[in-house]
Write a protein that binds this DNA or RNA. Structure first.
Lengths: 183, 183
DNA sequence: GGTCTCATGTAAATAGTTACATGATTTC
DNA sequence: GAAATCATGTAACTATTTACATGAGACC
């Protein structure tokens, strides 16, 4: 039994907001969901074709406002109903891939200095992410009543904020622990 | 340029602790690292062969204590040196796959009840994980001085504990937010 | 003329899971 | 004798990324 192909649901989710081209979907994902989910063009374009042939989306070419023609996709009634079915299903776990944790876990083979560098880099990355999150939060707060999906986005975003804050605390604690291992 | 194949480093990391069979490695990963990293037999066995042919590990058959023969692998000096090199490199980000977040994000298309169910399920899963973590923490604390790698494992484990505690707080907050959206 | 953004798509390769095949030993 | 655990491995498939090919329009 194959694992569920989640690109299709991601696309359907995006199109449930508004009609988009493949490029739009990619940009939307990269701007809004980048820390929770990502897709590449290599997945997006073939899946868009499949969804059209299944009647879950409708596509039509439109002249680009500035640039080439755009292939704009809209979700159909059938697509919306499939999306709702998928949303109601429990989330499937993805195999965990925390490379930072993996490296720290095995750092005895290299020494505490190496682990400390990983923690330091993670702190910097996390600080940058937190700034992005706070900016997004302010933006979404300001337009909270403009669209009915904003509250859901905020719920997810606040999970991200909690995650980054927790990570920074962990960095503090871990640096103390690891410095104690220094020769 | 292909993405780095991280199965090899995972194997080398495990063998830096002690010699293991493929079965041992899988069991070790599933018992100790399951929430941070995972590998399947389909990746493990072929990679073990590749590592042997590259001289990073050495393998020899041994009679099983209870059961069939075991193919036991040990890390070589060259393997240890390669592992150290990889450990010193910055961690590569993995594409994020938080399906819970994805579903909550798009839950406007299905309604707050659906989002609340996801949060509820996540809480239950997280509670179970937290129990496991606490048990592991107690076990590792008790044997802290028995092996020099335990402090590194504890650092990672405490990240997991913080993560689960943060998640439970998020579930509380999100349930309040989502209940306010109920009709 | 050069570079950036907009825009669509394909080909090749990798990474990874799942299911299957096989069989020994131990425990009930 | 059934079931669980120990143990190795392969085949088929899916998911996914990366790199490439292509080109229009805007801006400097």
């Amino acid at each position: 039994m194959p694992r569920p192909a989640r690109t299709r649901w991601t696309i359907l989710g995006c199109l449930s907001i508004r009609p988009m081209s493949g490029y739009d979907i990619k940009a939307f994902l990269d701007r809004t969901l980048v820390h929770f989910w990502s897709e590449s063009y290599g997945q997006l374009y073939p899946t868009l074709k499949a969804l059209e042939s299944e009647g879950l989306i409708e596509s039509r070419m439109e002249p680009g406002e500035r640039g080439p023609e755009r292939n704009v996709h809209s979700i159909t009634r059938k697509g919306r109903s499939e999306l709702r079915k998928w949303l109601a299903l429990p989330a499937e776990p993805s195999p965990p891939r925390y490379e930072h944790s993996l490296k720290v876990f095995f750092s005895h083979a290299a020494g505490p200095e190496v682990a400390l560098e990983h923690v330091g880099r993670l702190r910097e990355e996390t600080l940058r992410t937190l700034e992005e999150y706070r900016a997004s939060e302010a933006r979404l707060e300001a337009m909270r009543d403009e669209a009915p999906w904003i509250p859901y986005w905020l719920v997810v975003l606040r999970g991200g904020i909690r995650y980054t804050e927790m990570t920074l605390d962990w960095c503090d604690e871990s640096e103390r622990e690891l410095r104690a291992l220094l020769p």
